Amino acid sequence: MAIAAAPRCPQLQCARPSRRVVVRAATATGTVPTAAVEALKQGVAQPGSVPAPAMLQAMLELEKAKLKPEGWLEIIEAPRARWRLVFTSDSKQVMAAAKRQPNKGGIFFPLTACQRFTAADQDFENGVFLGPVASLTFSGPYAWGPGRQLSFDVHTMKLGLGPWRFNIPLKKNGKPVEQVDPKERKKLPFFLYAYVDDDIIVARGRSGGLAVWSRATPEWQMSSGVAAVYK
């Protein structure tokens, strides 16, 4: 799921400029690398103020900290929580950085992308938005565990054009993730979380890339078209 610093993107202008470090749900086996958290929050609030390689290095530091995921799921699926994709590093950049080799770090994601998790029915939805004009999202069930992993499946593609929404089934007789055969479950896409607090999420995808999501403000949700889709 995760996708040179890029030009400033309109979706980033609504970033919540919070510099506080919320570690309520980030209890660790050691000490939370607060400098890494601060760097990522600064990079989200003011794109370009933190170089892309430094953003990637901060994500790797959080992974190395091996934080305990206590309370993380509750934050991820909190009522009305919407998580916008801000920064991504593909697997090649991640591998280069881990080996201390030259790398571009990643990009500030150039599209308006957002995801949400609904605890009541364990439904996940992720997609891209063109304001009130159009949207393309994918949804399905998810399940937490083991460890810091959240696995999900895609059952439906949803196309939005203005006020209309079209659901296109992608998988017949789709099952909740918990009911999927263990061997098949290992093949599902997933997020392996490195850090979660009330402001940002850092996770690695199945492809090996790393990404940072920021909790979307209500104003951003309205201007981006997300509020009309994720009700």
Results as ranks from 00 to 15, higher is better:
Phe124Asn: 10
Glu125Ile: 00
Gly127Gln: 03
Val128Arg: 13
Phe129Asp: 02
Phe129Val: 08
Leu130Thr: 14
Gly131Phe: 02
Pro132Lys: 00
Val133Gly: 04
Val133Pro: 14
Val133Ser: 07
Ala134Cys: 06
Ala134Ile: 00
Ala134Trp: 04
Ala134His: 00
Ala134Leu: 08
Ser135Val: 10
Leu136Glu: 11
Leu136Trp: 06
Leu136Thr: 14
Leu136Val: 12
Thr137Asp: 11
Thr137Gln: 05
Thr137Pro: 00
Ser139Val: 06
Gly140Cys: 12
Pro141Asp: 15
Pro141Cys: 14
Pro141Ser: 12
Pro141Gln: 15
Tyr142Cys: 08
Tyr142Trp: 03
Trp144Ala: 11
Trp144Lys: 03
Trp144His: 06
Gly145Tyr: 02
Gly145Lys: 07
Pro146Ile: 10
Gly147Lys: 04
Arg148Val: 04
Gln149Val: 01
Gln149Leu: 05
Leu150Met: 12
Leu150Cys: 15
Ser151Phe: 14
Ser151Ile: 11
Ser151Asp: 09
Phe152Gln: 00
Phe152Pro: 05
Phe152Ile: 00
Phe152Thr: 08
Asp153Glu: 06
Asp153Cys: 06
Asp153Lys: 08
Val154Cys: 07
Thr156Trp: 00
Thr156Ile: 08
Thr156Arg: 01
Met157Thr: 12
Lys158Arg: 09
Leu159His: 05
Leu159Ala: 03
Leu159Gly: 00
Leu159Pro: 01
Gly160Asp: 12
Leu161Trp: 15
Leu161His: 15
Pro163Arg: 07
Pro163Asn: 00
Trp164Pro: 07
Trp164Ala: 08
Arg165Asn: 07
Arg165Ala: 05
Phe166Asn: 02
Phe166Ser: 02
Asn167Cys: 15
Asn167Glu: 15
Asn167Ala: 11
Ile168Tyr: 10
Ile168Ser: 09
Ile168Arg: 07
Ile168Pro: 13
Pro169Trp: 03
Leu170Lys: 02
Leu170Cys: 07
Lys171Pro: 13
Lys172Gln: 09
Lys172Asn: 14
Asn173Gly: 12
Asn173Ser: 11
Asn173Met: 03
Asn173Thr: 01
Gly174Met: 06
Gly174Arg: 04
Gly174Val: 03
Gly174Asp: 10
Lys175Cys: 05
Lys175Glu: 13
Lys175Ile: 13
Val177Gln: 01
Val177Cys: 05
Val177His: 01
Glu178Thr: 14
Gln179Ile: 02
Asp181Pro: 09
Asp181Asn: 15
Pro182Ala: 04
Pro182Glu: 00
Lys183Gln: 12
Glu184Phe: 07
Arg185Met: 06
Arg185Ser: 02
Arg185Trp: 07
Arg185Glu: 03
Lys186Gln: 13
Lys186Tyr: 07
Lys186Pro: 06
Lys186His: 04
